[in-house]
């Protein structure tokens, strides 16, 4: 594993790893934005009294939380084409990651909204605010503070989970590292570097989440 020539080969093909790393970041960023939107919408629906939407939200959360992400992504990539719906691996990855992480994010948002005291709603209503105004101006800013640390943890999960794109030739870091090592059998160096690259993304985020959590608790 520590043979110098293997590492030399790796550094000569650094562009493979950087490209994979860039795609991993891109997939994660796009999925994060979609995840946040899904979480917010589904989380708010779960706290509302819209019966039909609520049932749909419950169904969505149950289904996506309790099936493996790999199954979902392979379904998107290999089953949907039979129905005439074809997405590129990259798009499949973004959709799958967003739906999967969104199902967890929605419960985070829901819990955060419920953690804001009921009296805040009443104060807003008593001044004449509508449900949406109270939500936007009073409840969500307070819920965001509560939701930020667990949401950051979800983001860390999302980045790590983006490695399942390798299963459908998604072109991400995991995929490129695996196929590079598959060609020359230099698995050791390949996956040490891959691990370190994932670590460089996730570690700062986890630390950030931990600090936030401390801040929220001491307040």
């Amino acid at each position: 594993m520590f043979a110098l020539f293997k590492w030399k080969a790796l550094f000569l093909s650094w562009d493979v790893f950087i490209l994979g790393f860039a795609i991993t970041i891109l997939v994660s960023l796009i999925s994060l934005i979609v995840t946040l939107s899904i979480s917010l919408i589904v989380g708010i629906i779960r706290c509302s009294n819209l019966k039909r939407s609520k049932r749909f939200a419950n169904w969505y959360i149950t289904f996506f939380q309790n099936t493996p992400l790999v199954v979902q992504i392979i379904f998107l990539y290999n089953v949907l084409p039979h129905l005439g719906i074809v997405f590129s691996p990259f798009i499949c990855g973004c959709i799958g990651l967003s739906l999967y992480t969104g199902a967890f994010g929605a419960t985070v948002i829901e819990a955060a909204i419920l953690a804001v005291p009921r009296g805040q709603f009443e104060a807003a209503y008593s001044q004449g605010m509508s449900y949406l105004q109270a939500m936007y101006h009073i409840i969500l800013p307070q819920a965001a503070k509560i939701a930020l640390p667990p949401m950051t943890n979800q983001t860390v999960n999302l980045i790590k989970n983006s490695s399942v794109l390798a299963m459908i030739a998604g072109g991400d870091l995991m995929y490129r590292a695996d196929s590079w090592a598959g060609e020359n059998l230099f698995y050791g160096p390949s996956f040490i570097i891959t691990g370190l690259l994932y670590l460089s993304l996730c570690l700062p985020l986890s630390k950030f989440a931990q600090n936030l959590e401390k801040k929220v608790k001491t307040k």
Partner: peptide, 18 residues
């Protein structure tokens, strides 16, 4: 609109915490 003209003071104050 009607509630804008009816103020309420609560037992638990309910000031906007943020």
């Amino acid at each position: 609109r009607i509630r804008q003209s009816i103020g309420m003071v609560f037992q638990a104050f309910n000031l906007y915490a943020h």
